[in-house]
Simulated scan of single mutants.
Amino acid sequence: MKRTVLILYFLSYYKVTICLRVVGVTVPALKQRGEAATLGCDFDLEGGKLYSVKWYRDNEEFYRFMPRLRPPQHAHKVDGIKVDMDKSSARRVHLKELSLKSRGLYRCEVSKEAPSFHSAQAEAFMEVNYFPRESPRVSGHERPYSPGEPLDVNCSARSFPPAELQWHIDGQKVSERSWLIPYGTQPAASQGLMVSTLGLRAPAHPLMQLSCIALMGTLRRERTVIVEINSSSTKKAFGLTVLTLLGVNIRFYDKIL
Rank of each mutant, 00 (worst) to 15 (best):
G80T: 06
E127Y: 12
S119K: 07
G140R: 02
L100G: 14
D84P: 13
G80M: 02
K82Q: 14
S102E: 02
S116V: 01
L98F: 01
K101S: 13
C108T: 09
P132T: 07
E109W: 04
V128C: 08
E142G: 04
A120H: 02
P132I: 06
A114S: 04
R107V: 11
R143N: 09
V138Y: 01
E123A: 10
Y106F: 13
S116H: 01
K96E: 15
R103Q: 15
S88G: 11
E142D: 10
S135V: 07
R143P: 06
E109N: 11
K112Q: 06
V138C: 03
D86H: 14
E123D: 05
S111W: 06
V93S: 08
L100I: 14
K112R: 10
S88C: 11
D84W: 11
V110D: 05
R107P: 04
E109K: 13
P136R: 08
V128R: 05
K87T: 14
R92G: 10
F125E: 11
E97F: 07
C108Q: 11
F131C: 02
E134M: 10
Y106N: 06
S135F: 02
G80Q: 04
V93M: 10
C108R: 09
L105E: 11
S116E: 02
R91Y: 07
E142F: 05
S99V: 02
S111R: 12
E109T: 06
S139N: 03
Y130W: 15
R133A: 13
S111E: 12
H94V: 10
K101I: 08
K82P: 04
V110W: 07
Y130L: 14
A124T: 00
R107A: 12
D84L: 13
K112S: 06
S89F: 07
E134D: 14
V138A: 01
E97H: 12
H94P: 09
K96N: 13
E109L: 13
H118C: 04
